[in-house]
Design a protein around this nucleic acid. Structure first.
Length: 423
RNA sequence: GGAGAAUUGGCAGAGUGGUCGAAUGCACUAGUCUUGAAAACUAGCGUACCGCAAGGUACCGAGAGUUCGAAUCUCUCAUUCUCCGCCA
């Protein structure tokens, strides 16, 4: 969440940045400052009362030691009123702090200043394109027909076992997925990311740490008995490894990656957007996560973008990169690039990666800090990106590479699958 | 799931009602000494909030309570360890 001290010191900038999201920046900043003023006032009053009570207690202690019992008892009588004041003051302070926290939970991250103002995905900026869009015959099949033809992904079977959005991968489909795990993890490792296998269920504190809670409560599967959530992305457990951690400057940048399954309820989605592999309740993804010194985070973001470019190049998929506009930006992000691959039979761009810098927004919730050269605590920056999400990669591979002989896999991937054709 | 023990600063570890934000050791930082290093010695060394400052307040797993006063007593919860049970 936003840091009140930073908001106070950068009022105009905060307003400007919130307005990029089409939010009433002026009102929000005014609310924050008003509540924080109230908090300060409440705290000052309480501190004064506590100081007085502490001082009296010390006097009483001294008097008892000197054996002046009567004087001590006389002082005791004076404290009951103070006690009540302290009790009320503490409650008032807690209430105000809670109020401020609840307000801050509802305010998303402030977009980086270069983020284009805009309302919908129409306003996202295309900043890079690579690869020619394959021209397909009119009888080119969408991937859900190809998966059925070769019996590699079974949607019906998933419905039987779990429900819609939980496909069963079979035979070469399953092996293709396994190949992608190794392909993505090997590449990430070569790029300097340490491989992690995190828990797939997380507690409430972790959900708050990276900002899924309270904002996206309904998007996560929740296990009621144990009060745990299924992860919607590896970002959550990987970033939360560093909750309440103080890093050394030499630790930067911290680079981790993880392959996990991801679970999303995606309530309210329907239609052709969710057909086949386009949107699932359970899917596989390799995530890369970095922790950065604040001065370096945008450099690292560019580095992550470059890395993902190399993956898509190796997979020989046409893709483009979008810089998300303020209206389309995720709740916790300051700047996000989306990668979309072109899926030829659907004639659609499919999002396969989202790479973001969160600046201190997550770090503030996580209390993820480092000591600067003056020995002062500072919040680190967090970044992450998908590298990559499997289902839509598979959709694009199947659609773009279909032929009479079957689906031809790119060379880089065939090395991992052990077969060149799905047929 | 049952029984017992524990949870203190980066780490180890003292502290059972008042001058304890907390001994001591290690680690760390700076300095002295040395050609350099090590050793030794000297000093410093938690976080957050309030305050121009002096200083104040809070924090000893979390939350509540008893008390004029709680790291220390009581209750609830969490976690860890040991033993038993179950188990991939």
């Amino acid at each position: 969440m936003l840091q009140v001290s930073v908001v106070r010191e950068n009022i105009e900038e905060t307003i400007k940045r919130l307005e990029i999201r089409n939010l009433p920046g002026k009102d929000l900043v005014a609310q924050i400052i008003e509540l924080d003023d109230k908090r300060k006032k409440t705290q000052q009053e309480l501190d004064a009362h506590l100081a007085e009570a502490n001082s009296i207690s010390k006097q009483i202690g001294g008097l008892f030691k000197e054996g002046k019992i009567e004087e001590a008892n006389a002082l005791k009588a004076k404290t009951s009123e103070l006690k009540e004041l302290n009790h009320q003051g503490t409650e008032a302070l807690h209430a105000t702090q809670e109020e401020l926290k609840q307000l801050l939970y509802t305010i998303p991250n402030t977009p980086e200043l270069s983020v284009p103002k805009g309302n919908t995905e129409e306003d996202n900026e295309i900043i890079f394109e690579q690869g020619e869009l394959p021209s397909m015959d009119n009888d080119a099949k969408p991937h859900w027909e190809i998966t059925e033809k070769y019996d590699i992904v079974d949607f019906e079977l998933g419905v039987k076992i779990a429900g819609a959005g939980f496909p069963v991968y079979k035979g070469k489909g399953a092996r293709l997925q396994r190949a992608l795990v190794n392909f993505f993890l090997d590449n990430a490792t070569a790029a300097g990311y340490r491989e992690i296998q995190p828990p797939l269920l997380i507690n409430e504190a972790s959900g708050y740490g990276t900002g899924q809670l309270p904002d996206k409560e309904g998007q996560m599967y929740h296990t009621a008995v144990d009060d745990l959530y299924l992860i919607p992305t590896a970002e959550v457990p990987i970033t939360n490894m560093y909750r309440d951690i103080i890093l050394k400057k030499a630790d930067f940048p911290v680079k981790n990656c993880a392959y996990t399954q991801c679970f999303r309820r995606e309530a309210g989605s329907y239609g052709s957007d969710v057909r086949g592999l386009n949107r699932l309740h359970q899917f596989d993804k390799v995530e890369i996560v970095q922790l950065s010194h604040p001065d370096k985070s945008y450099e690292l973001l560019d580095e992550m973008v470059d890395y993902i470019k190399t993956l898509l190049t190796k997979l020989e998929l046409p893709f483009r990169i979008l810089k998300l506009c303020g209206g389309d930006l995720g709740f916790t992000a300051a700047l996000t690039y989306d990668f979309e691959v072109y899926s030829a039979a659907q004639k659609k761009w499919l999002e396969v990666s989202s790479v973001s810098c969160f600046e201190t927004y997550q770090a503030n919730r996580l209390k993820l800090r480092y000591k600067d050269k003056n020995g002062k605590m500072q919040l680190a920056h967090t970044l992450n990106g998908s590298a990559l999400a499997f289902p839509r990669i598979i959709a694009a591979l199947l659609e773009n590479n279909q032929s009479e002989k079957g689906v031809k896999l790119p060379k880089a991937l065939a090395e991992y699958t052990g077969f060149e054709y799905i047929n």
